[in-house]
Amino acid sequence: MLSRIAENLYWLGRYIERAENTARLFNVQANLMLDLPKPYRFAWQSLVDITGGNEVFGEHYDEANAINVQTFLLTDMKHASSIASSLHSARENLRASRDGMPKEAWEEFNEFHQMTTKRLTAGMPSRTRFNVLNDIITGCQQFLGLIAGTMDRNEGYYFLRLGRNMERVDMTARIIDVRSANLLKKTEEDLTPYDSIQWMSVLKSLSGYQSYRSHTRGPVVGREVLRFLVQNPEFPRSIQQCVDVVEVTLSKLPNHKTTLEAVTPLRELIDTAPVRTLADDSDRLHSFIDEVEQALINLHSAVANSWFSVNH
């Protein structure tokens, strides 16, 4: 297929997954804040850091308070990774590749995009925010379900799946990072009850609470949650599972040898992750996530070099 279309579909997958997971990310943070005692509700800035939008945020906003961060992550078109921007970019990529897609895909996404844009720009008091974000998550899932049920298993399908799963690794890693930023210092003994509540919140944001319970008999504790999110081979949003899918998907594409090799460093990181230590040390957790992000960037470069257009 055309390199440009392959690239469009790869990014379509990434942007949809990004929109969905930014909604999840925001929900988990908002819920964490509600669970914490008032003096500790300070961490809005960390959300901006985690989504990699520090510089843009600094240019347009004074203070990282709830309203500003909400606007920035959900509706701001100046921020390339906001939900509104991601959905817009997804639509543009879909538009450019729509002749290779099932006819219903464009219709469905267009309607979803229109509806979401309307709701996002209408302003969101916190009592409706959860529903709006939840509908965005559902809308993305519905679209991908439509694709899964109607699209030929051709190269285009695999590029879309590749983008989606690479982005999912990225976003699961970032959501774990939110937790690292909110990790409370061990010395504050009186706060330990909150510890398990917070990890539970992370699981729920990834729709993983039920799955975690069926895999782990014990209570919700940091090291087990981390083991689950990083290394579980069955949970569809675990890093391990997504990387498995990435490998299978790559093997369906033409001339995949070099890109498949580029997965190895990522795989090694996951296999050897010291979950016990990471759960207790926010700095080490943060730098582990950084390494995962870097491995992903390298993998992306390998993908781009192998298949995407050389003109731009």
């Binding site: 390199s3 440009r4 257009s309």
Partner: peptide
């Protein structure tokens, strides 16, 4: 999506 090479032929850039 297309390039013209030194052989004066037109090519599509594909995967």
């Amino acid at each position: 999506d297309m390039v013209v090479q030194d052989d004066d032929c037109v090519y599509l850039q594909t995967t």
